[in-house]
Design a protein around this nucleic acid. Structure first.
Lengths: 217, 217
DNA sequence: CGGTAAATTGAATCGTGTCAATGTAAGTGG
DNA sequence: CCACTTACATTGACACGATTCAATTTACCG
């Protein structure tokens, strides 16, 4: 986990699963406001003016694009502490929605006079993540994708056995380029092999880390 | 196409297909050196120290990752004028190779004291491209992927009918998450429908733009 | 030209998608 | 507190698109 002196991307979950206060990113920049978004509500839409960078205080966010016929690709999920909303020009190229009830810190783009090293670093990290995800979508099987997804989520939640899944099976499918049925089948197979347990629909327990890691590539 | 006062990403091909001089990016930064790479030669490897940002003077570059069993995902191709080599930390996370004989301008990272607006802008554009490609890999069919690929290449080469394909079918497959056979079959089908012509293995002519555009989504 | 690597084409297989039915958890009102 | 509703997830049977494996064919270069 990162030290306090650098940028905090990982969510900070207490042992009871309740979010801990999240450090501010972006140097001395102060958020203009904190906003709450109800489950399923829109944070921004494709084509809208991109006014802010966002940091998740608690909750979870999906960022996605749509094809004309309704096919959806989720490009990333964002959890507590993580930052999103970078855009190459004045407008958003994606949609962003709250998955669960979500509180966001807004950092107005207009306040970024000089690009800080921290903002740049966050952008590069976002780029690296997107490029890594290309490998998953382009070259991995359904089982490998799900395994990689669970390990990624686990790591971002502090490496605990218990992994929260704020998103639906449909969201997971649209992130991994799979249908809900395939996601569900892989989950069931992992459960049968006792690699994971599924205590509720929205959580998973990783029982055999090395088996998952071996699967994920 | 972009004005001269802003960053030049598009290749500048003359009507004879010969590269024109490419403007310098990155503000007043001057390249330390210009290097030539033979076809197939390595520009950098995963894990290596990331010392430079690169601009293609002429030629073409593939940037990719490998899975343990040899599966490869090309995350992007770079053509004349385009800039690559951004990394989130001190090391490269990908491999880069010259496809054809390629000349590169090297901009040492050590010389970037403050992050320039232009460097940031290039990074954001790279991010947006990666995110767009996620949609292709996650949610499009083989025919849609190839159509989108041809249109993208055509646009980056100035929107001419004649499109150069510096990369092999294998490269195209590894970029689109397909096998060479599938790529080849789609090419043949497009040729049969007279949507494209294939005068040589390494070039394509787009005959029916709207048909391709309709296919690509 | 002839040799070689790359690309194309064909046939069979496999993985994931599609469609349909069933199961399950959470929420509502009686 | 329980029936009822509704949305979501799981499971099964089948279809289809892409891969695999194999056989040609084509383009390129000495």
């Amino acid at each position: 986990m990162l030290a306090y002196t650098t940028i905090q991307m990982s969510p900070r979950l207490g042992s009871d699963g309740i979010d801990q206060p999240v450090p501010l990113p972006l140097g001395q920049a102060r958020p203009q406001q904190i906003l709450f978004f109800a489950p399923g509500s829109e944070i921004y839409a494709q084509g809208q003016k991109a006014r802010n960078i966002y940091q998740v205080e608690f909750g979870a966010v999906r960022v996605y694009r749509l094809l004309a016929d309704g096919r959806r690709q989720i490009s990333a999920f964002y959890l507590s502490g993580e930052v999103f909303g970078f855009e190459a020009d004045a407008n958003h190229h994606f949609f962003a929605e709250a998955i669960t009830g979500t509180s966001l810190r807004l950092f107005p783009r207009s306040k970024f006079g000089d690009i800080s090293q921290e903002l740049f670093s966050l952008t590069l990290r976002c780029l690296t993540r997107a490029q890594e995800h290309l490998l998953v979508l382009g070259r991995q099987t359904a089982a490998e994708r799900v395994a990689a997804f669970l390990l990624d989520l686990a790591e971002r939640q502090g490496g605990l056995e218990q992994v929260e899944l704020p998103m639906s099976r449909m969201d997971i499918g649209d992130y991994l380029g799979l249908t809900i049925e395939t996601v569900s089948r892989v989950f069931s197979k992992l459960k049968d092999k006792e690699i994971i347990a599924l205590p509720t629909l929205r959580s998973a327990e990783i029982k055999k880390w090395n088996a998952l890691q071996a699967m994920s590539e």
